[in-house]
């Protein structure tokens, strides 16, 4: 009896929370198929009687959705590649290599984590301007290859590396394996879960990044989805319903991505056990 009651309480709590979390997204979907004016109806229309799927088709007339998606994917993928190449290297240098700079290096990583981005934002903007690279993807992508702004990810990977027994590394060293070989053939394969997790996190962050594209992109053809939608929002004659449809299309891919990466993703985080 008690157990059954407990079960009911647990489920109802979970369902209640799920409803709260899902409601705004359902509102997004329902609005995206409303016809013009229904959004302002009072009392509101929760579910439009006749869904207007045309809104989705209209998005393609208003913004170059494929182009924007392509740009966003390009930037996101390059960022992921950049961080996945550079971050594990540093993480390795501040976990399993016993060298002079180890502690300072780790402190530097933590420092970048705490540094407000505003401090570096202006000088970087000036530098990219002087280099004539504003308007290209270089300011958005190049830093990733040098782990700039990736303190959090380096930290996560480093914590994961720490859970791998040093004896494993030592044994390989005694066998005469080169350090890079140890890294590439022992460490990395063992760290797939965390690499996957970080990859997903980086992708999500790059996919939805707003300030970067806002500052550095200024040609409609090179806009990302975030910026494209923002520009779209600022015009007077745009219908909100279409904007909602566009937002839904913007959000859907990452929900799908998350759905497929979910197991790996949660596993990765669980295994890290970020310990301060």
């Amino acid at each position: 009896m008690v157990e059954a009651a407990q079960k009911i309480v647990r489920y109802s709590l979970l369902v209640l929370f799920s409803v709260v979390f899902a409601a705004p997204l359902l509102w997004l979907l329902s609005t995206s198929v409303k016809k013009q004016g229904e959004l302002f109806a009072s009392p509101p229309v929760f579910f439009p009687k006749v869904p207007r799927w045309q809104n989705y088709a209209d998005v393609f007339d208003t913004i170059n959705f494929f182009r924007l998606t392509g740009n966003t994917v390009l930037i996101s993928v390059l960022t992921v590649i950049g961080i996945l190449i550079s971050a594990p290297l540093v993480a390795y240098a501040c976990s399993h290599i016993e060298w002079k700079g180890k502690k300072i290096l780790f402190a530097a990583v933590i420092a970048t984590l705490l540094l407000p981005y505003q401090v570096t934002m202006l000088p970087l903007y000036v530098i990219w301007t002087r280099l004539g690279l504003v308007g290209t993807y270089v300011p958005l992508v190049l830093p990733a290859f040098l782990s700039a702004g990736a303190g959090y990810y380096v930290f996560m990977i480093r914590q994961f590396f720490m859970t791998i027994p040093n004896s494993l590394v030592q044994a390989a060293r005694i066998d005469g394996a080169s350090e890079f070989r140890i890294y590439a053939q022992i460490m990395l394969p063992l760290c797939k879960p965390i690499i996957a997790t970080v990859g997903v996190l980086v992708f999500l962050a790059a996919w939805s990044d707003f300030l970067g594209p806002l500052l550095y992109l200024n040609d409609k053809d090179s806009y990302t989805l975030s910026l494209g939608l923002y520009a779209f929002m600022q015009t007077h004659y745009v219908e909100w319903e279409k904007l909602m449809a566009a937002s839904a299309m913007f959000t859907l891919p990452i929900i799908v991505l998350f759905f497929f990466a979910q197991k790996q993703f949660i596993e990765g985080i669980t295994l890290t056990g970020i310990k301060g």
Binding site: I81, G82, L133, V138, L142, F145, F180, D221
Partner: peptide, 27 residues
């Protein structure tokens, strides 16, 4: 091995730069 790694890193940097520049100039 280490050289190979350096090469990968370098070439990816170059690719990024090229892609960026190309996009910048595509107009």
């Amino acid at each position: 091995m280490r050289k190979a790694y350096c090469r990968t890193l370098l070439s990816s940097l170059v690719i990024v730069l090229l892609v960026g520049v190309l996009i910048g100039c595509s107009g």
